Computed example of a mutant assay.
Amino acid sequence: MLFLSGQTPIDPATGKLIDGDVAAQTHQVFANLESVLTAAGRTLDDVIKVNVYLVDMDDFAAMNSVYGTIFNTPYPARTTVAVVGLPLGARVEIELVASSGR
Rank of each mutant, 00 (worst) to 15 (best):
L2F: 15
L2Y: 12
L2C: 01
F3D: 07
F3Q: 10
L4P: 00
S5K: 15
G6A: 15
G6I: 01
Q7M: 12
Q7C: 13
T8S: 03
T8P: 00
I10T: 15
I10Y: 08
P12M: 05
A13G: 04
A13N: 13
G15A: 05
K16V: 07
L17M: 09
I18Y: 04
G20T: 07
G20A: 09
V22M: 09
A24E: 13
A24I: 04
T26D: 03
H27A: 05
V29C: 05
A31D: 14
L33G: 00
E34K: 15
E34Q: 15
E34A: 12
L37A: 11
T38P: 00
A39T: 08
G41P: 02
G41L: 08
R42I: 02
R42H: 12
R42A: 12
T43W: 04
T43Q: 07
T43V: 03
T43P: 06
L44Y: 02
D45G: 11
D45L: 11
D46G: 09
V47D: 01
I48F: 10
Y53S: 05
L54C: 05
L54T: 02
V55W: 07
V55M: 03
M57E: 10
M57L: 15
D58I: 05
D58N: 14
D59M: 02
D59A: 01
D59R: 02
F60N: 07
A61S: 13
A61H: 11
A61N: 11
M63S: 02
S65F: 12
S65L: 13
S65M: 14
G68H: 14
I70G: 01
I70L: 03
F71D: 01
N72T: 11
T73Y: 10
T73C: 01
T73W: 06
P74K: 12
Y75C: 03
P76H: 10
A77T: 08
R78M: 15
R78P: 00
T79P: 00
T79F: 11
T80A: 06
V81R: 12
V81D: 14
A82R: 15
V83D: 12
V83N: 10
V83A: 06
V84S: 13
G85E: 15
L88H: 12
G89D: 08
G89S: 08
R91Y: 04
V92M: 00
L96K: 01
V97D: 00
V97F: 09
A98I: 04
S100N: 10
S100M: 10
G101M: 05
G101C: 07
G101T: 03
R102N: 08
